[in-house]
């Protein structure tokens, strides 16, 4: 496995070089965005309202962190990924509109997102679900927060990362998806499982 170090903002060429199975670590600014932040960002864009961060070339982390406030400073406690498929209906539009270059999450995303990644130059980076303290080790500070009115998990957090990972390139910008590969293997294996259960 290749081990690749990347820094945000990400450029299209280095993203298009990544292949499924590569291992990546990220440094620089990353943004968290889940269901509500995706919806709001796309709405604001449509309505011509200001969006408080620059998503072009960004790494967007599907994450609802646990944060603690000490005085005026936010302190990150735990920051693992949330299930990315909840954003399936929003991500193709988000990638197209904002030019995000990396989506970080768990569980994978559907074909329209994979197609958008191919068209616009973006990758999906898988981080181990539930391993929220390991992930937090790669975050050095909380730089800012926007849209806190939608609640701590849903807000748009601006994080500074240093060697954030390990992340596995699970969907690349050539149209390959580790999840689709596993899925077709599973379809084949289900026959074996059914035999074991005496169903066929």
């Amino acid at each position: 496995m290749k081990d690749i170090k990347l820094t945000t903002p990400l450029d299209e060429d280095s993203i298009r070089e990544l292949k499924i199975g590569d291992v990546v670590s990220l440094s620089g600014t990353i943004f968290t965005a889940r269901d509500e932040a995706h919806i709001r960002a796309l709405e604001y864009k449509k309505e011509g309202k200001d969006i408080p961060v620059e998503f072009t070339g960004s790494a967007v982390f599907h994450c609802g962190p646990i944060m603690q406030k000490e005085g005026d400073t936010w302190h990150l406690v735990a920051a693992g990924p949330t299930t990315s498929s909840r954003m399936n209906s929003l991500e193709p539009e988000f990638i197209k509109t904002f030019g995000a270059r990396a989506i970080i999450g768990k569980g994978g995303m559907s074909r329209p997102t994979l197609d958008a990644m191919k068209s616009y130059g973006c990758v999906y980076l898988a981080i181990t679900g539930g391993a929220a303290l390991l992930a937090a080790k790669g975050i050095t500070s909380v730089k800012d927060v926007h849209w806190l009115d939608i609640g701590m998990p849903e807000a748009l957090w601006v994080l500074e990362a240093e060697g954030f990972g390990p992340l596995i390139v699970a969907m690349d910008s050539q149209g390959n998806s580790l999840y689709e590969n596993v899925e077709s293997e599973t379809k084949h294996n289900i026959k074996m499982a059914k035999q074991k259960l005496g169903l066929i």
């Binding site: 994978g108 181990t128 590969n181 596993v182 293997e185 499982a193 074991k196 259960l197």
Partner: peptide
Amino acid sequence: SAINTLGIGPMGLG
């Protein structure tokens, strides 16, 4: 035992 022959694996990455 049957489900563990499916090959979904940790985090669905096989």
